[in-house]
Design a protein around this nucleic acid. Sequence first.
DNA 1: GGGTATTTGTCCGTATGTATT
DNA 2: AAATACATACGGACAAATACC
Lengths: 274, 274
Amino acid sequence: MASPMYRQIAEDLRERIESGELQPGQQLQTELELRERYGASRNSVRDAIKLLITRGLVQTRPGQGTFVVQKIDPFVTILSGEPTAGGPEGAAYQWESSERKREVTSSPIQVEIQEASREIASQLGMAEGTEVISRHERRFIDGTPWSMQTSLYPMEFADRGAERLRRPEYIEEGTVMYLRATIGVRQVACRDWITVRAPNSTEADFFKLPSDGRIPMYEIFRTAFDGNGQSMRLTITVCPADRNQFIVEFGEASVFSDRRVRAAPWEGRLHSDA
Amino acid sequence: MASPMYRQIAEDLRERIESGELQPGQQLQTELELRERYGASRNSVRDAIKLLITRGLVQTRPGQGTFVVQKIDPFVTILSGEPTAGGPEGAAYQWESSERKREVTSSPIQVEIQEASREIASQLGMAEGTEVISRHERRFIDGTPWSMQTSLYPMEFADRGAERLRRPEYIEEGTVMYLRATIGVRQVACRDWITVRAPNSTEADFFKLPSDGRIPMYEIFRTAFDGNGQSMRLTITVCPADRNQFIVEFGEASVFSDRRVRAAPWEGRLHSDA
DNA sequence: GGGTATTTGTCCGTATGTATT
DNA sequence: AAATACATACGGACAAATACC
């Protein structure tokens, strides 16, 4: 009685999916068959399916049908303060694959000279409008788009001798090492600011996300500080939340050294709903 | 011609919102007026509005109209390994308000005895089916629901003398201190595992989120370790991603000590879309 | 409290377009 | 080329929520 028909249909389908009657990857009945099954109109069936789509339970493929979604094997990143050499762009992050080996590749680096917006200037501790170097890079895992990253440096760094910041090339030894070697700027600390938001159209396009923006994005701001407590870099990383997870470790490192990172820690129900 | 009409309508409305022509909180034209404006049917206008809803740009109120959403002032949490006394449940997290003072309140603690599921047993390093104590708590900021948190402890802790774990009361000095004082279990490290997922119905209900699940949830698993490298606690925190952000700090603490946490670091566009 | 107008929500039927097999 | 299945678009009807008098 209570709830509208399209919600009842969605609820029934949801239960059948979560009970395992409908397996991941399996095709649902067609809209016309579901119309018969539930004695509703095709439009109401479609409303139910739309609901399940925004909940991420099913996906539709024109000309084929409606399918239970396959969960994506998430990529787990350990946020770590220690810059490791070898990683691209100063290894703002240290990657660790969960199980099978995955291959990380990168787009060419795109360099722009910008005037710092209010927010960027605030993060980098400079006056608004000061010139900054923007180094942008897109990353893939096993060929699928995984993250977009932009690092911003004070233009002054290049003027003082870190010329390679201006060039659209990788800095193999890592920008942290490079900046220390060339102009003596030493990174001693950094802060990650983790947010989640809807993707913009550029991101939805690059990550091949559904254009309705139902899959959220992590946006992580990493501000790095030198020995004087000055901000020396702002790195902004954006990646889809449906295929990424993050780990942060505190305290005695020895505890973690022999501990392998496993798959997602949780898939069940925590406690009685009350 | 390209894109379907309902997308063109949505795109036009999006631009008017982002340009500021339509201010947050302001009411859009009614569906019938928009029908006139765009020369489309009411259903097509409604499809456009649905798109904007899942993108989080507008909300509808039956009987009233469609409104541009107001952004929520986010609550920023510093993830920190050091357990501070005074905070509820061993202060798994240290809270810091961004600007204005906010009042954090808590529901009564709900205690359950459970048998560890495979995932929980795996995280706590025990055999599946071992009894664990579950302490569940819900938190509010300025009266609005903000987070749900569940801490799981080995039942053995209570048997060895930490009796208060079994009782549905706060442990004022913090469970970290309490466990050290009563049974000599000392927390030396912890690991946070950060994930994002759609809310379940219990969460959507408690947090008063729209039932279509378009607002994602953070789910953070904190595993705490004692001096022997054994897991001593698993704390699971769930909170809506639209009103929460997290900060992690690495390296020399002195850099951060005199640095106030400000509002969200970013609201603009990063680089030319290309 | 009641009544009425307004506005969005649900549901239907139908027709046509587009992608896939 | 044909069949199938989802996508878009229209129009209409009634229900439910809200605001206002």
